[in-house]
């Protein structure tokens, strides 16, 4: 297994190899004792093993069994748990919602973060006040964000619901699928915008003044200058944020969803990771829930490969 991996390195390994080799400083610091680097790596490797590899291995093994909740007996069922999940219309429905949700949350939180950062970068008076105000939202914990969202969208007292009613939109968050999805996306985006804002703003400030001035001489159209000079220079930041935002939409929105559906998913939109929780922890179906988490793991693996193989090539690291 390890030999095979060494003779034909996978894409991630190749990427890691490239990434670690690329900077190639003039003087390379070498450890003269081979054990020492491993010693430094040990805590991190232990954490990864305990919190990632071991649970993943457990999930993979239990996904091939159906098991009684208390662990008295497990029956090997092969790929039954996988075919059950993928064959269920409900599961496919949740999967397609997850895809739409992830695309929308990522696009809007990145887009808004970029817009706000570009504008804040140009503010001269009271800039730190503006920035602090923008960033402070990031300090709100996801469950609290969900709680705030729940209050804003409460059917009986929610201010946002009253506002929508003013425009003739009778919002029923918790009952109407579309309305609940709208509220969830809004709250998830709101929660993530400040994070993107911080990174993009620091990315913008990393662009040398000389480059900006040179661009100004070449082109006086501000928008065009932004798209041809500033944006490409922001690409490394944007690429990093893209990965982070997709992960956020897929996994970290769990708390927002949990609070907004009030522990009762009913026909409300939920994401795949919430479904894993509902089936595993509320339904005590360990095999089915493990199979779903393995599917999710594969999806993330494929996404990561695509991102690094296709997108990363287009990123200019300056």
């Amino acid at each position: 297994m390890t030999n095979a991996a060494q003779t034909s390195p996978g894409p991630i390994r190749r990427w890691i190899a490239r990434a670690t080799v690329r900077p190639e400083p003039a003087k390379r610091v070498q450890f003269d004792r081979p054990l020492l680097p491993w010693l430094f790596l040990a805590p991190q490797l232990a954490v990864i093993f305990v919190f990632f590899y071991w649970p993943s291995a457990q999930a993979i093994s239990s996904s091939f069994y159906i098991e009684d909740p208390f662990g008295f007996g497990a029956t090997f069922v092969g790929f039954d748990n996988y075919t059950d999940a993928l064959g269920s219309a409900e599961y496919r429905h949740i999967a397609s919602f997850t895809a739409i949700f992830t695309v929308l949350v990522t696009a809007f939180s990145l887009g808004l973060g970029l817009l706000l950062a570009v504008k804040a970068d140009q503010v001269i008076r009271a800039r730190s006040t503006y920035r602090t105000a923008m960033i402070s939202v990031y300090a709100i914990a996801p469950p609290v964000a969900g709680l705030i969202g729940m209050m804003l969208f409460d059917q009986h007292i929610g201010p946002f619901v009253k506002l929508a009613a003013w425009f003739g939109w009778e919002m029923k968050v918790g009952l109407n699928y579309f309305d609940t999805a709208f509220a969830m996306i809004l709250v998830s985006v709101w929660k993530q915008v400040p994070y993107n804002f911080i990174f993009i703003l620091s990315g913008l400030q990393g662009i040398p003044q000389s480059v900006r001035e040179a661009a100004l001489i070449d082109c006086k159209n501000g928008a065009r200058r932004f798209f041809t000079a500033i944006l490409p220079l922001l690409a490394p930041t944007a690429f990093f944020l893209l990965i982070i935002n997709i992960t956020y939409a897929l996994f970290d929105t769990f708390a927002v969803i949990d609070v907004m559906v009030k522990d009762k998913a009913a026909n409300n939109p939920i994401t795949l990771v919430y479904k894993v929780y509902v089936d595993g922890f509320r339904g005590n179906d360990i095999g089915g829930s493990s199979a779903q988490s393995v599917i999710l793991m594969l999806v993330v693996l494929v996404l990561t490969l695509v991102q690094f193989r296709w997108l990363e090539r287009r990123v200019h690291y300056g």
Binding site: E90, A265, A266, N267, V278
Partner: peptide, 21 residues
């Protein structure tokens, strides 16, 4: 058995009834 999950199915369908789906 698995009645908490069956309840979740009921909740989903009841919502659908009243939202007209």
């Amino acid at each position: 058995g698995f009645y908490p999950q069956i309840r979740a199915v009921e909740e989903r369908e009841f919502n659908k009834i009243f939202s007209g789906e």
